[in-house]
C-alpha cells in the first residue's frame, strides 16, 4: 500500500470578506509524514480542510494515487453529542457498517471495532456514552474511528492536545507505524520539537506558504523565531 502524493497549486480561500489563504503552492510526497506548522489563525486547519474538499477554495489540488485512496480525518477535539445515548461501540458501529447501528453489529464490523479499540486503549470503555468522555478519551475515539478502514491518507488536526503522557506516546507510535506502512500522513502540529523529531517535510503556513521543505532545512531557529513570535510582537 502506498498513500497519495499531493500537489497544490495557487490555492486561495476567502470566507466572507476575509482572505484566509493566498496563492499557496506546495507538494507532499507519496507516503510522507508531513506537518503543517504556523501561528494560531494562520490557516493550517483551513488548508487541511481544502485538501479534504470541505472548503470553497480556488486553485488546483491533485492527488496522485497508485491504489484507491482511503482518507481518514482526526479533527480537532470536538464536543461530542450529549443528547443521544450513544456509546463508543454505537459510534464505531455507525461508521463501520451500513446496517443501522441500533440493530446488532455484524461480525466483520465487530472485528474491526475490537481492533481499533484495542489499539487506542478504549476497550474497557466501549459501553461509555460519548457525551460523558474526557478530552483525552474523546481524542482516542476520534483516532479509533480513523483506523476503520485502514487509511492511505491520514489527516490529523492537533490530535494530542488533551492527551496524557501515555496517550501522547501511544499516538506517536501509531502515527509512525502508519507512516511506515505507506500511509501519507498530514499532521497539523504545534509542537515544534515533535515536528523536528518525527516529520520528514513541513509547510509553515501563515495565510501564505511561509516556508516549505525538509524539516531540517525549513524549521531553522531563525524561522521559528520569525514566524512564531510575530504575533507576540504585533500584540505588543
Amino acid at each position: 500500500m502506498q498513500g497519495p502524493a499531493i500537489h497544490v497549486e495557487n490555492l486561495s480561500l476567502s470566507l466572507g470578506a476575509s482572505l484566509i489563504l493566498k496563492n499557496m503552492s506546495f507538494s507532499i510526497a507519496a507516503g510522507a509524514l508531513h506537518c503543517f506548522a504556523g501561528p494560531n489563525g494562520g490557516g493550517k486547519t483551513s488548508t487541511a480542510r481544502c485538501l479534504l474538499g470541505q472548503m470553497p477554495h480556488t486553485g488546483k489540488i491533485r492527488f496522485d494515487n497508485s491504489s484507491p485512496q482511503i482518507t481518514a480525518y482526526v479533527p480537532q477535539l470536538i464536543e461530542m453529542e450529549r443528547t443521544l445515548p450513544l456509546t463508543i461501540d454505537n459510534f464505531l458501529t455507525l461508521i463501520t457498517q451500513d446496517k443501522p447501528a441500533f440493530m446488532s453489529t455484524k461480525k466483520t464490523a465487530k472485528l474491526l471495532i475490537d481492533s481499533a479499540l484495542e489499539i487506542t486503549g478504549l476497550t474497557s470503555k466501549r459501553k461509555y456514552m460519548i457525551g460523558s468522555l474526557s478530552g483525552g478519551e474523546r481524542q482516542r475515539l476520534l483516532f479509533a474511528q480513523a483506523l476503520i478502514p485502514t487509511p492511505t491518507f491520514l489527516v490529523l488536526d492537533e490530535p494530542m492536545t488533551s492527551l496524557d503522557e501515555g496517550g501522547s506516546q501511544l499516538f506517536e507510535s501509531l502515527i509512525m507505524q502508519m507512516h511506515a506502512s505507506g500511509t501519507t500522513v498530514l499532521w497539523i502540529n504545534h509542537d515544534l520539537e515533535q515536528v523536528q523529531r518525527l516529520a520528514q517535510t513541513v509547510t509553515i503556513i501563515d495565510k501564505i506558504v511561509v516556508a516549505h521543505g525538509p524539516v531540517n532545512s525549513t524549521l531553522t531557529p531563525a524561522m521559528q523565531r520569525g514566524v512564531f513570535t510575530k504575533h507576540i510582537e504585533e500584540a505588543a
Binding site: L52, G53, Y73, P75, I95, D98, P100, A101, F102, Q145
Partner: peptide, 18 residues
C-alpha cells in the same frame, strides 16, 4: 439503509464528508 449515514452526518458533518 441510510440511517447510519444520516446520524453520522448530524453528529459531525466533516467526519461524514471524509
Amino acid at each position: 439503509p441510510l440511517y447510519n449515514r444520516m446520524l453520522l452526518a448530524s453528529l459531525n458533518a466533516s467526519l461524514a464528508q471524509v
